Amino acid sequence: MTAPFLSPAQIRNRLILTARWVLRDHHPGTDGRCPACRTADCPVATAARDMLRAATGVELWSTATKPTAPDRDDPRQAG
Rank of each mutant, 00 (worst) to 15 (best):
A36H: 12
A45F: 08
R24G: 06
W61Q: 12
A36R: 14
T56Q: 13
P67Y: 04
P43F: 02
D74E: 04
A47W: 07
A54C: 01
T63D: 15
D31P: 03
T46M: 07
A69V: 07
A45I: 03
S7R: 02
D73P: 06
A45K: 01
A54V: 02
S62F: 04
R14M: 05
R20S: 00
E59G: 04
T2K: 13
N13V: 02
D73Y: 14
R38Q: 15
H27A: 08
T63N: 14
F5V: 11
D25G: 02
A19G: 00
T46S: 12
P8F: 02
H27C: 11
A40H: 13
F5W: 15
P75R: 10
A55Q: 08
C42M: 06
R53A: 11
W61M: 12
A3W: 13
A19H: 00
G79N: 06
I11F: 12
Q77Y: 14
A9F: 10
T39E: 15
A9K: 13
D41Y: 10
Q10N: 09
P28K: 00
T65H: 13
E59H: 13
A40C: 00
D71A: 09
A55L: 04
S62N: 13
L52W: 05
F5S: 07
V44Q: 09
D50P: 02
R38M: 10
A36K: 15
M1I: 11
L6Y: 11
A3N: 12
A54Y: 05
A55G: 01
G29V: 03
R49P: 00
G29K: 05
I16F: 11
C42H: 02
N13Q: 15
S7F: 09
A40Q: 15
A69C: 03
L15N: 01
A47E: 12
R14W: 05
